[in-house]
Every structure is written in C-alpha cells, then in structure tokens.
Design a protein around this nucleic acid. Structure first.
Length: 836
DNA sequence: CGTAGGCATGGAG
DNA sequence: ACTCCATGCCTAC
C-alpha cells in the first residue's frame, strides 16, 4: 500500500516517503507527486488509503487533523474552502477545521498540472525544467501544460501571465524570481478563474511587501504567506533554491489562511519562521532527483545567514545526516548516504577514493578520505578520518552533521547541530507552535551551543512514546555510551558470575551438600537473597577472614569468614568486634592494603574495582538498596567477574593470585613513579637492585681477594667477572625499569616484558612448589559466593596487629629469594641465612 | 593482543 | 523484491 514505483522511468523511486499526500483534482480524482523527480500522477492508480487515513476522512493540510463530514458518500470529495475548512462535495457540508497545531508538512503537494492516468512517464519538459532549475516563463509553462495535457492549460497560463504582470507592477525582481523559482520547483499555480485581478494583485503586492520586509528584518526569513484563493489552496512548503542559495527571501510557503489568525500573530510569526527548521529540498538538481527527504538539510534561515556571514560566502546546504553510533565511534568512518555522496562529492572510481578537504564553520579545514566499499553490486560511501573533526565539533551519535557548499567555488563545509528531543527526530514534519516558538531550537555551529538538559539528551519520554520516529531513531542509535548517559536508559548487563557474587543463601537455609565430579555443591531449598559483597582473605594456616565495607562510612571491617551480611551492612552491625562497631573507629585495613588486596586478587584491576566500590558506596550512602543497585552499578561499570574471578591473561603462568612483578603492577594511569615512591613495585625493585649490588660488591671483594691469592686461575676469574657483569646489567636494568614503570597497564606490561626478555624472567616464580601449594590452598579466587582469597598469609595475629601488606609482600619476596631466586630481597635478609 | 581496514550481513524502508 | 546503510566480523598488521 502506498509504495509504488514512480512512473518516471528515470526515477523509479520505490520508497513511499517520496510519495506525498494527494490532493483533489478538478476532475474529481486525486494526484500524487513524486518528490524525487517531481512527476505528478493521477492518484487513482494508487491505493487511496495512502493518501488519506481511511475512507471518507480528510486530513487537514495545515494541521494534519482528520476530519469527516459524516456523509457516507464523501469519499475523498472534500474541497478546501476559503473559510479555512473543507467542504464535502457530496453533501455540501462545510467543515471548519480547528487547527490543533499548524503543521507545515513537507509532503503536501503543490497544485498544478497533473499527469493523467495514461501518462506513464513524466513529460521530459517537466523533468528538464525541474532538474535544470530553469525559470519558467509563461511561454514555457504554456508549452509545458499543453504538452502534459493538463486541464485548463490555457487558463493556467493566463493566470500565470496575469500574476507575472502583477509582479511586474509590484516591481520586485525578487518576487518574480521567487515565483519563477516556485514554478521551477514544480509548484504550479492553480488557476483561479474568475478571481478579481485586483485581488490577485493585492495578494502579490502584499506578498512582495512581506518578502521585502523579511529581507530587511530577517533577510533569510521564509514567510508563510497567505493567498486567499478561492477553491483549493496553493500550498508549498518546499523552500526555494534562491532562499538558501543567495540568502534571499522567497515565498516559501503559501498556506491556507487560517481564519482566526490575526495580523498581529502573523507579524509575530515572521521572525520565528526564519528560525523554523524546515527540511530543504536539495538545492542542486542532481540532489533533488535523488535525495531522500531525511537527508534534506534542515538548517534554519537564521543559521544559514549566520553561516554565510561567518564564512563570508554564499552557502548552499546540501544534505545532513544524523550520526549513527558507528559514525561517531572510534573508527572514524562516517557513512555517507549514497545519493548524497554521488550528488555532492567528486565522482570516484577507485575504492581507495580521494582525499577531500572540508571546512568546518570556523573555517578550519579538515581532510578526509572520501572513498567507497563495494557492497551488493553497489557502493557504500564513507568519509574516513572524521574522528578529529567529530570530536572538535563535539558531536556524537544522534547529533546531526550538515554538509554545505560554498558557492562559487564548491568548497565543502561541514556543520553540526545537536540532536534535540523533537525537531531533529522528526523526519519531515515541523511543528510550528501557535506562539511561534519551534520546540527544541537547535543551533548550527561548529561547536555546539545548545544547552541540553543534564542527564539526558533524549530523555523526553513522552516525546519518545508519542513519536515513533523518535523511537526508531533512538533504536538506531545503539551507542551504549550514549545510553549510559541517559538516566532512563541504562542497559543492565551482568554476567551470572557477577550476579553470583551478590547472591547469598537465605540465613535460615540449610544446604544439602552433594558431590558432582568430586566437586562439593551446596543446594538450597530457598532462593538466594542479595547479600553484601565482601572479600575473604586467607592466612597462611588456612585461616580465613572476611572483609566488609560499611555502607555508611565506607570503612573496611574484618569479620569472621562465616559472617553472613545483609545487603546493607554498616559498622553498627559488626557484632563480632566491639571496638569496631562504630563508624568512628578507624579503618581495619589501610588503603594500601586494600589496594594490594585488589592488586593481588584481581591482577591489575584494582583501580577499576575501587571505582566500582566508590560508586557502590555512594549509592549505598544514598540509601538505595545496595544489592540490586550494586547489580545495576556493576553492570554499568563492567564486569566484575573478569577482574575477580577470571584468570589473568598476562601470561600463562599468571594465574589469579600470581604475585610476580608483572601482576603486582598498578594498572592504569600515566606517568612515572617518583624516585621516592614507596609502592610495592618500586620498593621491590629497589630492594632487588640493592641486593644485587650488595652481592656484587661482596663477590667483587671476594674475587679480588681470590685474584690476589690465586693469580694462577685467570680463566676462572674471567668467568666469574663476566657473571658479575651480567648480574650488574640485570640490576641496572631493574633499576632503570624501576622509575620508568609507567602505570599504564599495557605500557607497563610491555616495558616489563621487555625487561624480562633482556634480563630475567620476572614472571617466573622459581618455586613452583609454592605455586602448587598456593593453588591447592585456594590462592586463586574462588568463584562461589564472592570469595576473593589472598594468596598468602597477609594477615597474621590479631586484627590490630596485622603486619602491613607491604611487609607481607616483602616477606614473601624474601622467602622466594631466600630459596634461590636470582634477585633476593634485601629487606629482612639479615635474618635470612640463605642470602648470606 | 589490540587495532584498523575491508567486506558481509541483515534490518528497515 | 530491492536498495540502503548500520554494524558485525574477519583478516592483516
């Protein structure tokens, strides 16, 4: 229904959007205009419901309101009347239209000469005139109308001649141009036989004066002029070429007078109309025949004027495009509508395309690669390398970029405007509110000027609900980041493992334990509840304890491992430690320890974890249910499972809990560590360097002694010397790395990997046995019930007497070193006989 | 392994 | 049934 091929073989448009509502022919039929090529057809060849909502109903051209006279024989037989309503041609009942919202509908048809049923192709003259934008002379129109066999050709011509005559009387070249332009846009004036010439003259004088006024006041204003013709109205919403090509005003729209509209309101509307965002049919003939209306630039006259001033040139809007997620994404490829690319960009034959220079509205020139990809026997045109420009303009998915051209010269210009809740999401209908304020005024600029409501760019739910086009657009913008910014559209994505972390058995539930492939599983009769997310640390002797964070003060408390915490847990719930049951009590765990905890447990992702936890904390502080909210928050922040339960991908040996030099790196961030930095990595490297140097000095002195004593063993000494040199290099490299281990995860890894290659396997824990033991002891994070287990005995003794994490680290390093590592630790080594 | 380039696919009109 | 185009996927680097 409704979707037909244009009968013009050169056009053959199939998209229904090109076919606009019909209008009544004098013969009683209805016509349709192809907005692609301008061909007009008798509508009877199409399904009537395409033109009217349903049988017998008529859609007001001004406000879109559906009206029905109630006459059973009134199918399609309405006529627009001077009084502003319509008249049923069957029952003669007049229906006054109370315009709800005057809508200037892009698709409404101009009246004019029509094809008849048996005219299958548009007359070449029509196409010729339209495409070449020739100005119609009376003669050519006469020729045209005769050629196409339209009714009343002669009278039309006479009418036009008369009107041209009037225009000459008014003596405004502009109006002549406008009228001709109007004609060239396939908007043929309807005959108005019997209309007093003076009336016509007055009308056009009025119109011309209006145009002049607009030229002075708002030179780019497009007027919604009123010509009180009897019979069908002339309605034209296409904006003429000269309007945006030369910045002159035109008779943009000739709309049916609304009876209740007053001169005052008309005046009031003048300025606002200049700012209305109308879809402009492409200025260029090539584009006119090809572009879908959704690509028609909707730059306002005001914006256009500003642009022309800014660039000191005449600007021709070409087309616009709403940025998709991929357009605005990192790839930097902006897909150009095929028709636009072929209409306004240089023709390219090679897929690689050509570099193309496009100015932004500030005059800054950008170079993109204009190219295409073969696609289904067609082409897909893209602009590559748009990211800097997109970023510079501060636009993102959903916003609109507009391509214009500077005439003369043909320099392309790219502009942008922010998407609004409505205007830009409406395809072709621009609502003009009675007060003259177009909703969702936007700006056309290189850098956005539109102030968007905080927290959501497209958060007008009612708008979205009521506007299927908006919904569609939003659906198309599958930019998760964009959605993330929208408070109403947070996509909840959480893995089962992540959810598991927050699930707790019901306190009263008693598990049934059974074995599946030697795995002990607990089965509960009752469904789980959301519980507090905690961390369980293990000690050397297998003792475990639980770390929980207060929802109020965010301090960490050490709790018995078996403690079952509700989703919202605070210090006051700490029934296990009377000294730490208040928020005023100091944190049980230092930030460094916490950092190390995440570092060890999560590989390197502690910062992310911190962020998550901060947000969780903040949310909790706001009194929201921490369990469910945690789910949502985690979903927003990303997966926890990866950071807490998954094996690291740094190295095959880097299992969760791996404490090698790589895995203990702080993850993201920039910059080097200060020389005085006391972080784990720095202290470890310093310690190792110190140890190596001490050993070297020691051995060197020993060697000197030996050399002095055994001068007859030069070969052996040489070997020893080389070995020491090698060790010195190792130490040197280690020191060099020490102050250069950037916190950037990748860079750091790379750096250390390089160091590893050059010197030693920093990832290698020489004591595989320990690895094995650690694994057996549950060093890796257990995936059930959110148990994050520290890989070693970091907490010994009573809570208040815990050694620092650093000490624990050193202890482990010392132990490792003491048992034969290449780089023994210095700290505490005095007590380590192995190091001596 | 991450990223970019090129093409394929499938939804929408 | 066909085209367009947003985006996914594969491959090379």
């Amino acid at each position: 229904m409704g979707s037909k091929n244009c009968m013009n073989k050169a056009c053959r448009t199939t998209t229904s959007s090109e076919w606009k509502k019909g209008w009544r022919l004098k013969s009683g039929g209805f016509a349709t205009l192809c907005y692609n090529c301008g061909s007009s057809y008798d509508n009877s060849v199409f399904c009537e419901t395409f033109h009217f909502k349903e049988s017998g109903w008529r859609e007001c051209r001004i406000c879109g309101k559906l009206i029905h006279c109630g006459c059973s024989a009134s199918r399609y037989l309405y006529e627009y009347m001077d009084f502003g309503g319509i008249s049923c041609l069957s029952c003669a009942k007049n229906l006054e239209i109370q315009h709800v919202q005057p809508v200037q509908t892009i698709g409404d048809l101009p009246s004019g000469p029509f094809m008849t049923n048996d005219v299958k192709d548009v007359h070449p003259l029509v196409t010729e005139h339209i495409r070449n934008d020739e100005k119609f002379s009376t003669e050519s129109l006469l020729q045209l109308t005769k050629a196409v066999g339209a009714n009343d050709a002669i009278s039309k011509t006479e009418q036009l001649r008369r009107e041209e005559s009037v225009l000459k009387t008014v003596d405004t070249q502009k109006c002549v141009s406008n009228l001709r332009q109007q004609c060239s846009s396939s908007a043929f004036l309807k005959p108005d036989i019997g209309r007093p010439e003076q009336e016509v003259k007055n009308a056009y004088e009025s119109l011309a004066q209006q145009s002049l006024n607009f030229s002075l006041a708002t030179p780019l204003g497009s007027s919604s002029s009123v010509l009180p013709f009897r019979g069908e109205i002339i309605e034209r919403v296409e904006q003429s070429k000269c309007s945006f090509q030369r910045g002159k005003t035109t008779m943009q729209a000739l709309s049916k007078p609304v009876k209740h509209s007053t001169a005052a309101s008309s005046e009031k509307n003048k300025d606002s109309i200049a700012q209305k965002r109308f879809a402009r049919p492409p200025a260029d003939g090539r584009g006119r025949t090809q572009l879908l209306p959704r690509y028609w630039p909707k730059i306002t006259d005001q914006e256009l004027q500003q642009l022309s001033v800014d660039l000191k040139s005449s600007i021709v809007p070409l087309f616009e495009k709403s940025l998709s997620a991929s357009d605005a994404g990192r790839i930097g490829r902006l897909v150009l509508p095929k028709a636009c690319a072929e209409a306004y960009f240089p023709p390219i034959n090679q897929s690689e395309g050509i570099p193309i220079r496009i100015q932004d509205i500030k005059g800054k020139e950008w170079t993109f690669q204009f190219r295409f990809w073969p696609n289904n026997n067609s082409r897909m045109y893209v602009l590559e390398g748009v990211t800097p420009c997109i970023q510079n303009m501060q636009v993102q998915a959903g916003d609109i970029v507009t391509f214009c051209r500077i005439d003369p010269g043909g320099q392309l210009v790219i502009g942008c405007r922010k998407a609004t809740n409505n205007g830009d999401l409406l395809e072709s209908h621009v609502t003009i509110l009675p007060n003259g304020n177009s909703p969702g005024e936007t700006s056309f600029s290189g850098v956005t000027e539109t102030l968007l409501p905080t927290g959501g760019r497209t958060s007008d739910d009612s708008m979205q609900q009521s506007n299927p086009v908006s919904e569609k657009k939003l659906r198309n913008i599958k930019n998760k980041r964009l959605l993330m910014h929208n408070d109403d559209a947070v996509e909840l994505r959480i893995t089962w493992e992540e959810a598991q972390e927050l699930l707790r058995p019901s306190p009263a539930a008693k598990p049934t334990i059974f074995l599946v492939e030697d795995l002990e599983l607990e089965e509960f009769d009752e469904p789980p509840i959301f519980g507090k997310r905690t961390f369980i640390t293990s000690r050397l002797l297998g003792e475990q304890e639980q770390l929980s964070q207060c929802d109020i003060c965010s301090k960490w408390r050490r709790l018995p491992v078996r403690a079952l915490l509700s989703a919202k847990w605070t210090c006051s719930d700490n029934i296990w430690d009377s000294n730490r049951c208040s928020c005023s009590a100091a944190d049980d765990i230092s930030p460094q320890e916490l950092e190390a905890l995440f570092t060890y447990n999560n590989g390197v992702n502690y910062k992310r974890e911190f962020k998550k936890r901060r947000i969780l904390d903040n949310v909790s502080k706001e009194g929201e249910p921490s369990g469910l909210d945690a789910l949502a928050t985690i979903a927003v922040l990303g997966d926890i499972g990866e950071s807490s339960t998954g094996a690291t991908t740094r190295h095959p040996r880097h299992r969760p809990g791996c404490s090698c030099i790589v895995c203990i790196q702080p993850p993201s961030g920039k910059g080097k560590h200060e020389p005085a930095c006391k972080c784990n990595v720095c202290s470890t490297l310093k310690r190792r360097f110190k140890t190596i140097m001490m050993r070297k000095k020691k051995r060197q002195s020993e060697r000197e002694t030996e050399l002095a004593q055994e001068k007859d063993k030069p070969a052996l000494a040489k070997i020893c010397f080389e070995k020491e040199e090698e060790e010195e290099d190792i130490a040197g490299n280690a020191l060099k790395n020490m102050n250069h281990h950037q916190e950037n995860e990748d860079g750091n890894q790379l750096h250390l990997e390089e160091a590893k290659k050059e010197t030693l396997d920093l990832n290698c824990d020489p004591y595989r046995e320990e690895d094995v033991i650690a694994e057996e002891d549950g060093m890796s994070l257990t995936t059930s019930m959110n148990v994050a287990t520290l890989p070693f005995d970091m907490f010994l003794g009573k809570p208040n007497d815990f050694p620092s994490l650093e000490e624990s680290v050193l202890k482990k390093e010392d132990n490792v070193a003491g048992e034969g590592a290449m780089l023994p630790a210095v700290s505490g080594q005095e007590n380590n006989p192995e190091d001596e």
